[in-house]
Write a protein that binds this DNA or RNA. Sequence first.
DNA 1: ACCTGAACACCGTTCAAGT
DNA 2: ACCTGAACACCGTTCAAGT
Lengths: 213, 213
Amino acid sequence: MEASGDKRAPLSRERIALAALAIADAEGLEALTMRRLAAELGAAPMAAYAHFADKRELLAEVVDAVMGEVDLPEADGRWRKPLRRLGMSFRSALVAHPAVMPAVHVCGARGANALTVIDRAHSILRAAGFPDEQVGRAVETIYAFALGSASLEIAWATLDPSARHAQIFALPRSAYPDLTAVMPHVLAVDVEDRFRYGLDRILDGLAGARRAR
Amino acid sequence: MEASGDKRAPLSRERIALAALAIADAEGLEALTMRRLAAELGAAPMAAYAHFADKRELLAEVVDAVMGEVDLPEADGRWRKPLRRLGMSFRSALVAHPAVMPAVHVCGARGANALTVIDRAHSILRAAGFPDEQVGRAVETIYAFALGSASLEIAWATLDPSARHAQIFALPRSAYPDLTAVMPHVLAVDVEDRFRYGLDRILDGLAGARRAR
DNA sequence: ACCTGAACACCGTTCAAGT
DNA sequence: ACCTGAACACCGTTCAAGT
């Protein structure tokens, strides 16, 4: 499978970033070196530097490519359902590319696609009549929650199986009595459902704040 | 200033991790190399490997040192105020060590101190009579939100000033009409207050779910 | 403007050796 | 068991050169 397309085609920021994403997806972020990327593109090791100032700038573009996969519901006057869908889709996009997560932390998510996602979240709330002084904080709350959820989920999924097993079955009850007591209830619920639960509680809270104004 | 103590004292996991944290705090995570760490400890480059299998394991210990700074309110039967304090303190600890944040993403936060924090959050809710099937998901929601908030805040703070200025003043209104319209309202509120707002909305939502049961 | 190829100054880690 | 010192196989990036 040739994810990066024809090796003869001229390089571009987009083509380079997509090739980089493909490497990270397939072999992890450690495998994404400038030399490996160049090889994948059929170019010399330094070729990408004509399009990106440094590796950090490249990683920022890779993060934004992930943000481009987020579905954007219309701002049609309703808010709860579309914002919920946006949040779910945002999480899905991050979780679909676990290797990219550390780069989100280093580079943030402030590319054109990320800003489009954030703008749409604002649009949904404004179109539904939320007051402007609540809109920004509401979006930030959901954004932070979705980002943190994806990070926790990915950290857990990429833990090696023996360590994960130990965290589930070998945690000392005496040191963590309440955590160990509750754990079975948590593990009984699918990760995506747990995310949805938290998201719904946030939406409940935002609805309440709007009424209380 | 000698943060790592007497160079003659024998090495230990804790002494090494604290020296590593001091380097990251002072000069950033990139400056934290095994050689630099050894120099700080007055030891040979490979000395730390007698106590840690690899650098990742060392970073996990550094993350847990940060988690050790979280204040743990008593589980005295109330839940809203103590859980709020716990969340605030968790965020503060992460924000106080911005350089460590990327390591949280790579290593997770599953050390002894992190587990103690999580256990205490469970204790607070259980002591207040929350049903067990809600407790785990409630804690996870707050944990994810606080982690994501700290990450966003740190990413923003560590952006270089010109880029930050551009994100505030040079964002095209035509492409992001609602984001740019709302931005002034967001920037008028202090970051910590914005975190508190989101946390309060989550606590509202959790309170509602408890009543609804 | 875009790409090349060699070189520089690192890095984490392996290994054989010392105490 | 803990620490050393040299070496290995990398890495991102600089630089001078090509088209």
